[in-house]
Computed example of a mutant assay.
Amino acid sequence: MKLTAREKTELIVEGITTVILLMLLNLSIIIVINQSIEANPGLRDGIFIIKRSILIGPAHYRIWSWENIFIILMLVFDAAVVYWRLIRRYHQMELRHIISELHYIANGHLDHRINFHLSGNTQSVVDSVNALVDSVIESLNDERAIEKSKDDLITNVSHDLRTPLTSILGYLGLIQDKQYRNTDDVFKYTEIAYLKAKQMKSLVDNLFEYTKVRQADTKLSYTRIDLTQMMEQLVAAFELDAGKHGLKISTDDPQESMFIDADAEKLGRVFNNLISNAIKYGVGGKNIYLRAKFVSDKEAKIDVLNDGPKIPAKALNQIFERFYRVEESRNKDTGGSGLGLAIAQSIVDLHGGYIDVTSDDEFTIFSIHLPIKPGEKLKYDKPKMLS
């Protein structure tokens, strides 16, 4: 910390004033003691005897002047007092600098930090202030991110709801204004309006599910699940839909049952979203594979693979963000609500696991890592590229 010229002057004046006061005090004490000794012959004689009896060093020097001893002691005491006064004033200046820095930060300069180094506990104060400011900045950034997230949520939901709603109102308006040629046109318009209404309901359902699984107090209903049996049920459930898109869905022939404790309903939603994604975006591929295995005695791993088009590398880090789509047009004919993968990730997080994705020219793999027993939390490992 650099002292200003004014502060240096204050220290000099403080030191000079303290020295003058101490000299006056010392002189007063010496005068009082001398007068007391001169007025008391018995005391004077006693001091004389004591001085004769005190011998210093091998040459046996005697101390004949008690004033010298007193002056030396007083000088030591005076030096200590001056040092204490100057240090005390210096610490006051340090606190004054810290307060000035705090006012500067409080006036809106939140990127500023107290950058001088002090000694002792004062440095702890500086470190605490800087840490507090960092914490406030982090909280403000988090709050801004939340606000932006809310704005993005409203914007995306409004867009996705407005598009089908506009179609519904348009076609129902045609019917209302009797702008149709025959009954077939009426059926056509009402069918389109019905399909658009279903799209809106799907988005609302997904949004409700997303907000529900994102709540901190969401409870899971744990049951014992046979992963082998679940894989077979999923293959049977999606076999027809996959076939319509020219895909074959299959799972490995299991050697034995694989049991974990999980929420069956929510876990089913995870696989439904991942397999639906694989079918929707796996155009050009031929296969979807489901594979499950125990990685350790605490962790199960389930892979959903497809040999469709590769996901661009820049999209892999964003693919689990809500409303994010690899295709950016937000076209309902090519994309869903953009919430499916975000819901899947949230459900897996609730179970204490994690989900990651890798994609190359051969396979796109979504890997779900789940703890075998409830209450455990798995450590995230970065995905490894396929060899």
Rank of each mutant, 00 (worst) to 15 (best):
K2A: 14
R6G: 15
E7N: 02
K8N: 12
E10C: 11
T17N: 06
V19G: 14
V19F: 15
L24Q: 04
S28V: 13
S28P: 14
I31F: 13
A39C: 08
N40D: 14
G42K: 04
R44L: 10
D45Y: 06
K51R: 14
R62N: 09
F70R: 00
I71W: 03
L75E: 07
D78K: 06
W84A: 15
R85K: 12
R89Q: 04
Y90Q: 01
Q92E: 10
E94W: 13
E94Q: 13
L95S: 15
S100A: 14
L102C: 14
N107H: 11
N107V: 01
H112Q: 04
H112M: 02
S124A: 15
S135G: 15
I137Q: 05
E138R: 05
E138Q: 13
E143H: 03
A145K: 10
E147D: 12
K148L: 09
S149T: 07
V157H: 03
T166P: 14
G170D: 05
Y171M: 03
Y171A: 00
Y171W: 07
G173W: 09
L174H: 15
I175D: 07
I175V: 12
Q176H: 13
K178E: 09
Q179E: 09
N182P: 12
D184P: 02
A193Q: 00
Y194C: 09
K196P: 12
K201C: 08
K201A: 14
N206A: 11
N206C: 06
L207P: 11
T211C: 08
K212N: 09
Q215F: 13
K219F: 15
K219Q: 08
L220A: 09
S221W: 03
R224C: 05
I225P: 05
D226K: 02
L227A: 07
M231T: 15
A236C: 06
A237H: 15
F238Y: 13
E239V: 04
A242F: 10
K244A: 06
S250Y: 03
T251R: 00
D252R: 03
I260R: 03
A264P: 10
L267V: 08
G268M: 06
N273P: 12
S276Y: 11
K280M: 14
K280F: 15
Y281D: 00
G284E: 01
K286Y: 13
I288S: 04
R291F: 14
K293N: 07
I302R: 00
V304N: 01
P309M: 01
N317K: 07
I319H: 04
E321W: 04
E327V: 13
E327A: 05
T334C: 01
L341K: 02
Q345V: 06
Y354G: 09
Y354L: 08
S359Q: 08
D361I: 03
T364C: 12
I365Q: 04
S367Y: 05
P374Q: 01
E376S: 07
K379Y: 11
Y380F: 15
P383T: 06
P383H: 01
M385L: 14
M385V: 13
M385R: 08
L386M: 11
L386E: 09
S387M: 06
